[in-house]
């Protein structure tokens, strides 16, 4: 029996308050790969949404969450790309700028917290690809996703900016495709719109523009004859899945692209029941693949 890999699950805001399918599916599928997720109380928003308002506040919030995990001596697993960026960028800044680190630590002392930089932050992509590894994933596959032709949406926040260290390459990310191949699926490695934004950051204030972005990308995927889309961020998924109908209305196109969280497909290939993976919570027509695809 392999020793368990242990992480503090940093849920962020969006996943635990509405994107339940991501949380359900990662809580079900990761233990199959001997990953133990620890629930840590007291976490708050990662700070990323506050960058436009006051970046000092966003640094404080990110450092606060890292400091909480440091107290438990646990690395953090942030399934949301936005959260992962906020935490990673905070680490990058505080590890390079001692004056800023001292300033943040003075603020943190009000809650008896200190940022030391001792713990790492991982995302779904590098957790699966680099820390667990393709071979281990392959070993658990019971129902290969045979014939599933899938496009991957990495999410801007998961791959940029390169210099602070991201889970995959900023211009040519391929780790999720490798994971999908391990699950038996047929990912499309390159399609012209692969790196296009989902539109989520503008949803609240400029919804029309945001939904146009979402719609255009889904339309392109449909046009290329790709059967489904895979993502790894609750914001992106909200746009492509929950807002797909609205996005279609915005660009006057009929969209019906099944959209999955990578962790849902992991669970399906491992033979876990669809309900436990939250597949009933997906708003896009996932049954086009889950039923016809035979999983």
């Amino acid at each position: 029996m392999t020793t368990h890999m242990k992480y503090a699950l940093y849920p962020g805001c969006l996943m635990p308050t509405e994107q339940y399918a991501y949380e359900l599916s990662l809580r079900e599928s990761l233990p199959v790969l001997q990953v133990q997720l620890v629930d840590v109380p007291e976490f708050s928003c990662c700070g990323e949404p506050m960058k436009s308002v006051n970046q000092l506040l966003s640094l404080y919030l990110a450092a606060r969450n890292i400091a909480l995990a440091e107290q438990q001596q646990l690395d953090l697993y942030a399934p949301c790309a936005m959260c992962h960026l906020a935490l990673s960028e905070c680490k990058h800044i505080l590890d390079h700028n001692t004056a800023m680190r001292e300033r943040i630590n003075t603020l943190l002392s009000a809650e008896n917290l200190t940022y030391t930089g001792s713990q790492q932050v991982v995302h779904t992509i590098d957790l699966l690809y680099d820390h667990i590894g393709i071979e281990k994933i392959k070993q658990q596959v019971k129902h290969p996703l045979k014939g599933w032709k899938l496009a991957v949406h990495y999410g801007c926040h998961a791959i940029r900016p390169k210099e602070i260290g991201r889970p995959d390459d900023s211009e040519h990310p391929l780790k999720i495709e490798a994971i999908l191949r391990a699950l038996g699926a047929e990912p499309v490695e390159d399609y012209p719109e692969k790196l296009d934004c989902c539109g989520a950051p503008l949803l609240a204030n400029l919804p029309e523009s945001a939904l146009t972005k979402t719609g255009q990308k889904l339309q392109a995927i449909q046009h290329h004859g790709i059967q489904g889309l895979v993502d790894v961020c609750p914001w992106c998924h909200k746009m492509f899945d929950a807002r797909q109908t609205k996005a279609g209305e915005t660009i006057a196109a009929k969209l019906d692209v099944p959209v999955f969280y990578l962790t849902q497909l992991l669970g399906l290939a491992f033979g876990l029941p669809a309900e436990k993976l939250g597949l009933h919570l997906n708003q896009s027509p996932v049954e086009k693949l889950t039923v016809e695809g035979g999983a």
């Binding site: 960058k51 801007c156 940029r160 390169k162 900023s170 934004c197 950051p201 503008l202 523009s209 972005k213």
Partner: peptide, 10 residues
């Protein structure tokens, strides 16, 4: 209006 895609920075 920035979408924070970070392609400019990258």
């Amino acid at each position: 209006t920035c979408m924070t895609c970070m392609k400019c920075r990258e």
